[in-house]
């Protein structure tokens, strides 16, 4: 059996401080619009925080590396799930453009949002856009 690692209190406090700082950064960046990078920045900061928790608070840094392997494996499965699901949602218009944007664009939920065509472009209310479905929407 490997020797049990005792982490000094100082390490915990430093990590806790770092987590608070990162939380502040998350809030701060939310005031800026980076367009499509918004989600990447938010998730990046969150992932970094989760990594700190796993490595230091959950002791994965010092533990038997088998535990770290198991942990990384679970992330790998999450990656598989998300990536392959995106192969569906990202390519739905491949053959039939009508299904490119899922039906939820017509949902009641979107009634308050400006009207768009199936490609997400804004549509004039009185419609030069000839897309059939939008007429039902009115």
């Amino acid at each position: 059996m490997s020797e049990h690692h005792i982490t000094p209190l100082k390490t915990y406090l430093v990590i806790a401080g770092a987590l608070f700082c990162l939380t502040a950064i998350t809030v701060w960046v939310s005031y800026f619009d980076f367009g499509s990078l918004n989600i990447i920045i938010a998730m990046g900061v969150a992932t970094f925080k989760a990594t700190l928790v796993a490595l230091f608070f959950m002791h994965l840094l010092w533990d038997d590396k088998k535990n770290l392997t198991m942990f990384i494996m679970s992330l790998m499965f999450l990656g598989i799930f998300i990536t392959i699901t995106l192969l569906d949602t990202g390519f739905r218009g491949g053959v039939n453009p009508e299904v490119e944007y899922p039906i939820n664009k017509r949902a009641a939920f979107y009634d308050s949002l400006p009207l768009t065509d199936t490609h997400g472009n804004p549509v004039d209310e009185h419609g030069t856009d000839s897309h059939e479905g939008d007429e039902d929407h009115h």
Partner: peptide, 21 residues
């Protein structure tokens, strides 16, 4: 909460991805 039901802004096919995963 609209996750799978299109009437609530969800995607029913996503349910099948979740379920069969």
């Amino acid at each position: 909460i609209g996750i799978f039901d299109p009437a609530l802004g969800g995607d029913p096919v996503l349910y099948q991805h979740f379920f069969w995963f």
